[in-house]
């Protein structure tokens, strides 16, 4: 199977504070990876650093995607190469409808004009599957959305933009049981043999409905242990203590 993402010895800081301290990660086509770890370990930083969020500075290491070096690529180029990240608290953009935003984004990523009617039909179908309110796609992007609506809107974007790799950053946090089921369903709808998902979470609920291949434990800016789906369950019962103390390597 083809390697999609290859992160090598990645270090990054925000301001003067080093957060990622030499992180390695490889994701292949068809795989579902989960990153878990205590608060402040650098989980969300990883997604942002892969995407070159200007708030963070890469200081060492490299990121390759689909064989291409994207370590220093611009944010939009990374998106166009086929990576998607969901945001924990996506920005509110007034005066821009969800519909127009996603249609514009899809046009940029696929580098073609998007047929209005086909797109509308597909989007309505997906929005319905995610149990989004009928008028939501016509509302201003994230403006006045509830926490759950924002998260579903991120999943809707993932479905429409169909990336090769979707990084879902705490998509399940703050959601009730039903909403978590809906989001899991969205991920299932997205998942094929050709793409991959990286789920960043600190809870197992979202993992129950998904076939997880690898679970990584991120502590203090490094992946300290990698296991299979059963590891998530163990974490839920016993916490991270043994990984924080022992620093076992995968």
């Amino acid at each position: 199977m083809k390697t999609l993402l290859k992160v090598k010895s990645l270090k990054a800081k925000v301001g003067e504070k080093e957060i990622l301290k030499g992180l390695n990660l490889e994701i292949k086509e068809g795989e579902v990876h989960v990153i878990m770890g205590p608060n402040g370990a650098g989980k969300s930083t990883l997604a942002n650093v892969i995407f070159n969020n200007p708030q963070f500075q890469k200081t060492a290491g490299s990121v390759f995607f689909d064989g291409k070096d994207i370590t220093n690529a611009k944010v939009d180029e990374i998106a166009k190469s086929g990576i998607f990240m969901s945001f924990q608290t996506p920005e509110e953009i007034s005066g821009v409808s969800v519909f127009n935003f996603i249609k514009t984004a899809k046009g940029k990523i696929e580098n073609k004009n998007i047929n209005y009617f086909d797109f509308k039909e597909e989007m309505q179908k997906n929005a319905k599957a995610l149990k989004m309110k009928g008028d939501l796609v016509n509302r201003e992007l994230n403006v006045g959305f509830s926490g759950g609506e924002k998260k579903k809107n991120e999943i809707l974007q993932m479905l429409e933009l169909s990336p090769k790799l979707a990084i879902l950053d705490e998509t399940d946090s703050g959601l009730d049981v039903d909403a978590i089921k809906t989001v899991s369903k969205g991920i299932e709808m997205f998942k094929t043999e050709k793409n991959a998902v990286l789920i960043i979470t600190h809870s197992c609920k979202i993992l129950q409905a998904l076939k997880v291949d690898f679970v990584h434990i991120l502590v203090d800016g490094k992946i300290v242990y990698t296991g299979n789906a059963s590891l998530a369950k163990e974490i839920e019962e016993n916490g991270y203590e043994k990984f924080e103390a022992g620093k076992k390597n995968a």
């Binding site: 611009k74 939009d76 998106a79 984004a105 940029k108 990523i109």
Partner: peptide
């Protein structure tokens, strides 16, 4: 800047 980053992460140029 955050809004610009958000939109760029969806494929829009700066």
């Amino acid at each position: 800047e955050k809004a610009i980053f958000y939109l760029m992460s969806r494929g829009l140029s700066e």
